[in-house]
Simulated scan of single mutants.
Amino acid sequence: MPAKRGTLEQNCEADCHDNQDEQANRVASTQEGAYYDMSSYLDTKPQLPTAFFADNDIIAVSCMRALKEHGYRLPDDISFVGFDDMPLSYVVSPKLTTIQVPKEAFGQRAVTRLSEKIKGKDDISLKISVNPTLVIRDSSKQLI
């Protein structure tokens, strides 16, 4: 069975939007797999975007490691943004800019909804949104 794949969304230049393959690089969703896939990609000496967005902080940190080992300076050469605001995001160097999701609030709402369903008080479907927060740290820089 093939490994589950994650994505790294690239901040592409205008001509990149015509080619879907250039907008997302697929990497494994594991720490070592993401590192290996990014390292292999960098070995091809591709033209890189100004920034990457990773599905989660583990993928981001692993890919940042590969970039640094290939001589790239973060964020001077490439910015990186993760997702989850995991504890590792502020202990790596550079500290990872990330998207923080209010997991506790989301969990509380989920428990409340589940309880309502079990008690038969509510049989309608709801879409619940949470407001993420951009946590700006050292892995990204403003270009404009």
Rank of each mutant, 00 (worst) to 15 (best):
R113K: 07
P94R: 05
H70S: 07
I118H: 13
K4S: 08
L96F: 13
A34E: 05
S125D: 09
R65D: 02
D122F: 12
I128W: 04
D55C: 14
Y36L: 05
I136Y: 11
T98P: 03
T97H: 12
F106C: 09
A66W: 05
N131H: 01
I59W: 02
Y35Q: 08
T30D: 13
D123C: 15
L48M: 12
A54C: 08
H70G: 09
L42N: 12
S79D: 12
S39M: 02
T44D: 07
E116G: 04
A105S: 11
S139W: 08
T112C: 05
E9C: 04
I128T: 13
G71Y: 08
L114Q: 04
I118P: 14
Q100F: 01
C16D: 01
L134A: 12
D15N: 08
V111L: 06
P87V: 04
G71E: 10
M64W: 12
A60V: 13
F83P: 00
D21Q: 03
H17V: 03
L126A: 05
A24H: 09
R65N: 03
K127E: 06
P46K: 06
S39C: 05
A34I: 09
N25I: 05
E13P: 00
N25Q: 09
D18F: 09
Q142M: 10
K95M: 10
F80M: 15
S139K: 04
S89W: 03
A54G: 12
A105F: 02
S89Y: 09
C16P: 00
L88D: 10
T98H: 14
M64P: 03
A28M: 09
F106N: 07
Q108I: 02
V92N: 03
F83T: 14
V61C: 13
P94N: 05
N11C: 06
P102S: 03
Y72F: 15
P49N: 08
R65Q: 10
V130P: 00
E116K: 10
E104D: 07
V101L: 02
D76E: 15
M64N: 10
L42R: 10
K119D: 15
Q142T: 13
Q142C: 11
S62G: 13
G6H: 05
I58T: 15
D37T: 08
V61H: 05
V27A: 06
M1N: 15
K95L: 00
K95V: 02
D85A: 13
S40F: 02
Q142Y: 12
V130K: 07
E9L: 01
K4C: 00
Q31W: 11
L134H: 15
S29N: 11
F52N: 10
P132R: 10
D43T: 14
L48R: 09
L96T: 12
D138A: 14
D43L: 07
L8R: 00
K117I: 06
K119N: 15
Q23E: 01
L126N: 08
P132A: 06
F53G: 00
L96V: 12
T97R: 06
Q100G: 07
G71F: 08
P87Q: 09
I99G: 02
A51M: 05
L126G: 10
C12Y: 03
A66N: 07
A105W: 00
G107A: 09
D21G: 00
V91S: 10
K141I: 08
T133S: 13
E116A: 11
D57F: 15
V135S: 14
A66E: 01
